[in-house]
Design a protein around this nucleic acid. Structure first.
Lengths: 243, 243
DNA sequence: GTTAAATTATAACTATCGGTTAGTTTGTAA
DNA sequence: TTACAAACTAACCGATAGTTATAATTTAAC
């Protein structure tokens, strides 16, 4: 079966070429502003050929979204392998989301857009995307359970719920959506400050300790938790000068 | 100027009629599945007439989104008028978001969709929508400041940042997006439980108290804070039966 | 009441897009 | 050489957002 094997390989390769080309265009422009004709042109194939590999534009887009989810999923998995207390694993996962938003802003943008009501999501990739999301949340839940067991995370809430609240918070707050970024910067904060302070904000909601407010992200540094170089809180300075 | 006044009024009324018709359709179907021809048919006008009142489909949609934002803004404003401690005002605003998501799921859906990259947002309503969002966040920030002053909210974080974190959390967690709703229900939780527990989760992140974990939403009941009737945590029961 | 100007409404049109069809080319194996 | 299937393509289709040229109606001055 050497020949049909090769055929299969070539077919996969073609699919990858189409996906790559579409990705380049979707990364540089909005979904609606990229036409199937342009994608065909970019991959140097006829438009109809694309339809031999993807049932429609939406499925092709979903394939790219799936690539992004896979990257995020891998990041989460890596956090779980670290030999650190549960609460630090949770913090590392939050940080993983932050890093993903910094390193892969285009994937994040596409992932977010795919969640909008624009899509019917009736294609084979949607289920995989859902599984990817679910896997991330499950890894987070496992970390929460570990934290409850090792006494670093509060035990008065269901681990599933905690993982949901954290997941959705991470997604909303650490996603660096442009609309929020502008508000933050208008107030004189850097995105790094904003992200770093978020960990200080949320820590007492997760931690089991009574002295949660005094806990600082720096306490986790020895476990490999970091954000960026410490930054001077410009806003605070400005606030003071106003008074 | 009686006549031109009347003309102006009639013009506004026409605009409202068009918006109402479009709203009915956008509430019942996805944006892409509603055509301008259908809207014209619904309002019993010619399609071109609509373009005398709205520059394009996107602007018409934005007008409806603005309606939704106005409703939410009013809800926030009302919370601020209550004579209660700062932290209770914050909780009431979270509850306001929850109520909005329950009472106006369609507006919420449209608001959320308008935030997606589908839209260029180059229309006169976008600025107003932005102002509405900003006003909500500012009201929340004022409540946070009050809480810091009256000692009910932690004072080691910038009020602006706290308001951002809370706003985005409310939007993500209390929005009842279908994708999450399904996950929650698959785990055996009701949306009411999920929302109620969120307040218990987030309280220690906001509160100044050292005994934050023991704080309960019921403590706020006397101030008019409530969610729904207390519910038996089905999940907990299930969990126990598993062990 | 007449009429010219302004406003409002309409039908017909254009451009573009996602998707399809019918047919051609290419590579492989007997 | 022939047969055949997979890969590919040109041309086309239906639908839709948006435009325009024109007709109908309303307003207001005379």
């Amino acid at each position: 079966m050497g020949i049909s094997d090769r055929r299969q390989r070539e077919k996969e390769q073609r699919k990858t070429e189409i996906t790559d080309a579409a990705e380049r265009l979707f990364f540089s422009r909005r979904y609606e502003d990229v036409s199937m004709d342009e994608i065909a042109n970019e991959v140097e194939l006829n438009k109809a050929t694309i339809y031999l590999y993807f049932e429609n534009k939406e499925a092709l887009f979903a394939m790219i979204v799936l690539r992004g989810i896979r990257i995020l999923q891998e990041k989460y998995r890596e956090c779980m392998e670290k030999q650190v207390p549960g609460i630090v694993k949770v913090a590392l996962m939050g940080q993983a989301y932050y890093q993903f938003s910094q390193e892969q802003p285009d994937y994040l943008r596409l992932i977010h857009f795919y969640g909008s009501e624009r899509f019917s999501r009736e294609n084979p990739y949607t289920a995989e995307i859902g599984k990817g999301y679910g896997a991330c949340r499950m890894v987070l839940q496992d970390a929460v359970k570990e934290g409850i067991n090792d006494g670093t995370i509060r035990d008065d809430l269901d681990p599933f719920l905690i993982s949901m609240y954290l997941m959705i918070s991470f997604m909303g707050i650490l996603s660096m959506e442009d609309k929020w970024k502008r508000v933050i910067e208008a107030e004189g904060f850097s995105y790094e400050q904003y992200s770093r302070e978020f960990f200080r904000f949320i820590a007492p909601a997760v931690s089991s300790g009574e002295k949660s407010h005094k806990m600082n992200v720096e306490d986790f540094a020895s476990f490999g938790f970091f954000l960026t170089d410490p930054v001077v809180p410009e806003k605070k300075k400005r606030e003071k000068s106003k008074i």
